[in-house]
Amino acid sequence: MQALYAQLLVGLINGSFYALLSLGLAVIFGMLNIINFAHGALYMMGAFCAYFLLHLTGIGYWWALIIAPIVVGIFGMILERTMLQWLAGLDHLYGLLLTFGIALIVQGVFQNYFGSSGLPYAIPDYPEVGGFRGLQGGMNLGFMFLPIYRGWVVVFSLVVCLATWFLIEKTRLGANLRAATENPTLVRAFGINVPRMITLTYGLGVGLAALAGVLSAPINQVRPLMGADLIIVVFAVVVIGGMGSIMGSIITGFALGVIEGLTKYFYPEASNTVVFVLMVLVLLVKPTGLTGRAA
């Protein structure tokens, strides 16, 4: 049973990354009508940003959680201003091709300087609260041993996902955003700066990816290609869940992570492929995806 709980936890962690990344993809797709192929590369940049902060300036994990998404988010907004905005009105597929090119450039540059092996990033050992040193160590829950960092990743990701959902579904800013998704021309007529909103939306989606990167740095190590294979799984998650609903992305992300974890326990040979197989099954039964609108 210990092993089953451990795999479930790993599944929940992967699910957190799927949820954070597919959420960002959905938000970006809603506003820009672009599938951001560079999402995996930007996730990797988030992790590297945390690594550089620690090793070049001595800034630790907690600040990196805030700084890395901002830095990478600004990088994303520069990409949007200089390149992506020129694709407005063209076929969606050009956005896919352009961001694929950006992903190749970013990953290639990092591979040149850091090879393909992983760089270690330590779990933070501060602040000391009670008997715990930061997020290191673990605690015995009776039925299983819970490494604190892993529990933290799941809880924190869930909080960020729900906060994003709240921002988009329940605030005035989010209402403007959803309106601009439906009808940008009309929203502009109301005096809202839609191009600036698009830039900020891209920054938000990219920031979520970078945040996921920082969270994953102590678990998966920091590697130039850490996002390359992940993004393809996230695409499958997006096909399964559809991009029409924010909550749908979050739930699908976590659910698929858990299913993948269970597969690792019961039939490890299929753990790499289970998400893709599920995608095929969903397409055969309900081609529009579980929550999605027809595209």
Partner: peptide, 15 residues
């Protein structure tokens, strides 16, 4: 790996 980077640049430039 610069070949990958150049391919990426060609993608971006073409689009």
């Amino acid at each position: 790996q610069w070949v990958t980077v150049i391919q990426g640049v060609i993608f971006v430039a073409c689009v």
